[in-house]
């Protein structure tokens, strides 16, 4: 499969990466080169093969329903949560106004 400039532009938009037309144009052959290469996977006979879900046989252990049992995965650390925020105000994260 291959991509054209419009498709690459659409992907960039979907990925939320602003991209000038020149950059989009430059990516078209690059991506096509890579896609042409990965296309060889299509020749593998995968009849009856399940896609891999867990690379090592391992059973998922669930967490107990306990609040703040481990501070690393618990709440009540607002200062930490907001410490690196570019625009925190009144205990909130600020973002440009959204119209829903």
């Amino acid at each position: 499969m291959s991509v054209d400039q419009a498709t690459v532009g659409k992907i960039a938009k979907l990925a939320r990466i602003a991209m000038p037309d020149d950059d989009v144009a430059a990516l078209v052959p690059e991506l096509n080169n890579i896609l042409a290469w990965v296309d060889q996977l299509a020749e593998v006979d995968v009849t009856g093969v399940e896609p891999m879900t867990a690379v090592i046989p391992n059973r998922m252990v669930l967490r107990a329903d306990v609040v703040d049992a481990d501070p690393l995965t618990g709440g009540n650390r607002r200062d930490d949560i907001l410490a690196n925020a570019p625009a925190a105000q009144h205990g909130f994260f600020g973002v440009p106004k959204v119209i829903e």
Partner: peptide, 14 residues
Amino acid sequence: AYYTQAQKVRTLIA
């Protein structure tokens, strides 16, 4: 075509 196929191939590699 891509992701599922790749994960199947991954199963074969394993």
